[in-house]
Write a protein that binds this DNA or RNA. Sequence first.
DNA 1: CAAGTATTTTTGTCCAAGACATAAGGAGGC
DNA 2: GCCTCCTTATGTCTTGGACAAAAATACTTG
Lengths: 351, 351
Amino acid sequence: MGTTVPIFSHSILVCPTTVLNKMTSTESAPSVNGGQMVSIAVAERETGVGKDTLRVWERRYGFPRPVRDARGDRMYPREQIARLRLMKRLLDNGHRPGKIVLATDEDLLVLSGSQGGQGNHGGHSAVAAKSARDQTADPLPHSAELDALRSHDAAAFRSLLSQQMARIGLEQFVIEILPRLNAMIGNAWAGGKLQIFEEHLYTEQVKALLRQSINNLPPGTRRPRVLLTTVPGEQHLIGVLMVEALLTLRGISAVSLGAQTPLHDIAAAAIAHDVQVVALSFSLAFRARQLVPVVSELRALLPAHVRLWIGGMGVSRFSGNLPGVERLVSLADIARLVEETPESAGQTQPG
Amino acid sequence: MGTTVPIFSHSILVCPTTVLNKMTSTESAPSVNGGQMVSIAVAERETGVGKDTLRVWERRYGFPRPVRDARGDRMYPREQIARLRLMKRLLDNGHRPGKIVLATDEDLLVLSGSQGGQGNHGGHSAVAAKSARDQTADPLPHSAELDALRSHDAAAFRSLLSQQMARIGLEQFVIEILPRLNAMIGNAWAGGKLQIFEEHLYTEQVKALLRQSINNLPPGTRRPRVLLTTVPGEQHLIGVLMVEALLTLRGISAVSLGAQTPLHDIAAAAIAHDVQVVALSFSLAFRARQLVPVVSELRALLPAHVRLWIGGMGVSRFSGNLPGVERLVSLADIARLVEETPESAGQTQPG
DNA sequence: CAAGTATTTTTGTCCAAGACATAAGGAGGC
DNA sequence: GCCTCCTTATGTCTTGGACAAAAATACTTG
């Protein structure tokens, strides 16, 4: 998912890290102890907050404050898990743990409901939270798509998308409708108005529709050959699919490697597949600070004659320029970039 | 990916756990240091062996033996990562770390090549390994598909798959060809005969083909309604897609939430979508130790009337039974499970 | 010798407290 | 308003020790 997605931090692929810790018996034991305690491994899995982080929060902020079992191991009560989940969501929206641990549960709920997707980082604090309570929460534009998602009607949602696509065409659909939808879903999720599984459903349906559309197009044959993927740390593939659709629409051959290809392997693949362009997609969930170093590194690994395109919401917030790297500010830029690629000159009609 | 996939441990979406630990720069930095070092977080992601376990192995067995960066942090050379992957694979097959750390790389290859997917647990040891050396090492069956992948010809590879599917039909293709291919790719990858990006390409192509096939079928309408997804920690979606294809082939309505849905949200989705069945896919990359606890936990979260199916290579190696959970030993079992589901009785013809 | 039980070894996960680099926030200057 | 320097906040990593569950081995008994 994700290129252009305003995204929900741990939506579809949040968690994975370390691997689940403690074993099964640990999990069964809790249920014996009154039935509602979970080990630190389970807590990590259920909240998306790492074990180390859970311990350090406990040490620094005094929360969470798990009880200990006979062995001295942490056992988290369900309520703390629930609160951790809430906190995690706020963290993903730009809040800081030091601030929100002090807030009351009520404040957390208000915070999660009041603020939009991104942008408003900074000044948030427990205090700001209270003032926010006065505001009317985020108006969230009404849309048939959102209604379909909220009523869990995958077929209806899919139909709505298909109809729009049929009406305005794949290109316009990808360039105009999808970015808007992505933003809307992202906001709804961030505001707690959409559950995680509803957002998963959205992502799956859009991906399926895009893939279907791409499959129905004749395979691209024209230059430049483009390699599509995301870097490690970026799980969202929607952006890649959107670009793949636009390229294939123009008869350009695109090869997708899916998400999170190690940089070294991207470079190896670029050479093996003999592409002229490598295109990367970055969602808002991608750590902003990592963008420049990662892209620079990949640029260094790639042969000089291979162009590097980067796009997605994660790139939009970055203003600088990197030598040898081309930014895809809007999806419509693809046309321009394609024309600017020398290898394509013979076959595309500029202007 | 992954349900039934014999899979390559970190294929497409390896990482996730906690959030990527060290940053990307960690990943990029190494390339500066001679180009092939990875942090412990990355090592965990790429090998499937937990951080704690990596450290304890180093302490006890002297392997892996990472170098240290300026900060004193472990940096694993690529070769050790490759060896760890091989070891992980053997562990998943019932070997024990204390034995195989002593074996030579050659022995590891022989072991991984000589024995099939599962079954032969028990007596394996380094000694057994050596005797195995007499056997011909993993012959890696020659296949046109593998050749196409190795020559990076996505179109040719896709054609091969399409042709086979057209010849024997989607059902047989999913039940017979794909598991074999997955196993072959997994072996090739584990044996270092396939690069990461080649395996990414494989995964993407198969997923695209499956999705295309599913889209071409009429949407399922019959009971039971099935919810498909994977748990946090399991990124491989191929298994989910395979099951989705088989269900849709039978006219059964399946809803897919993609990979890594938090357990809580799986339960919420099951209720919201009013499904009779939740089906999970586990690849070999999924930590064996976590299977029982995770499944038990989800079972507890789900309403009693919702059935829980688990399948994939990650489940095959588990022999026990869990109350209220049904194992999908082979893909062909789907027919049986469907018939056994009460809600479907009115519409399916048993026996 | 088979089968079952007790004992030993192996193995993964957890804990503690500390260290440190990077991110975010804020101050100051152009 | 934008950029740079400085301070604080935060997450990840480190070491060495501990322990329970699983696996392997030894031992008993029929």
